[in-house]
């Protein structure tokens, strides 16, 4: 299974390593034509402003919009911001693949970054495995609202931190920086089913 990781800027190597460990063939994606050769795409953590500028400059915006209409995408942190329909603090363009509103840097600055353990929703454990999940939040966004049709798979208190709509997944935390492989397994499942 060939899975791309958008590799313009961010912690794309950590995602590639995780996907390879799980038996997928990870491809670093920097050009539009590469999107035709992969079954799914990860939008990694990083700076969403930097990624937006490079996507624009390198004319990746349209190929990416086409891709989200066809194949599964997993966005983490900055990647989740790129997948959202509405972005605030400040407002910026996004791919709109998931019907949610997301607020950038919503916990605050790095001083407010944290590692927390959450108890997964039942649907998440049914589709993967049970047990608490360690979530790494780094200058993370908060999902402020989701439309009906968006499933919340993980919560931290009242806030959704992993959501699913159709073929796409968005997480506000960095699963790629822990040893828990469940999020990437869930994503590869979806890629396998197309």
């Amino acid at each position: 299974m060939r899975v791309g990781v958008l590799s313009l800027q961010g912690d794309f190597e950590a995602h590639s390593r995780r996907l390879s460990d799980l038996g997928a063939e990870a491809v670093e994606v920097r050009y539009g034509h590469q999107l035709e050769e992969i079954g799914g795409l990860v939008l990694p953590g990083g700076e969403s402003t930097t990624n937006l500028i490079l996507m624009e400059e390198e004319r990746l915006w349209e190929p990416l919009q086409r891709f989200v209409g066809q194949r599964p995408v997993l966005g983490t942190c900055a990647g989740a911001i790129l997948l959202a329909r509405d972005v605030s603090n400040p407002s910026q363009p996004s791919l709109g693949a998931i019907a949610m509103s997301i607020e950038r840097n919503a916990y605050g600055r790095q001083a407010d970054s944290s590692i927390r353990t959450v108890e997964p929703e039942r649907e998440f454990t049914e589709r993967t495995r049970g047990g608490p999940l360690e979530a790494v939040f780094i200058r993370a966004p908060i999902i402020r609202s989701v439309d009906p049709g968006v499933t919340v798979l993980l919560r931290d208190g009242p806030d959704p931190i992993l959501v699913e709509q159709g073929r796409h997944l968005a997480a506000t935390f960095h699963a790629e920086l822990t040893t828990d492989t469940r999020l990437h397994e869930l994503f590869l499942d979806k890629v396998g089913r197309g």
């Binding site: 800027q9 961010g10 990083g46 700076e47 402003t49 930097t50 500028i53 790494v136 960095h174």
Partner: peptide
Amino acid sequence: GLAEQLKGGVIMDVTDADQARIAQDAGAV
């Protein structure tokens, strides 16, 4: 973990808010 997020990026020296805005608009991480 924050350093991980900065990978593949450019960190720019700035001496005032105007320069900071120019840096951000150019794609600084």
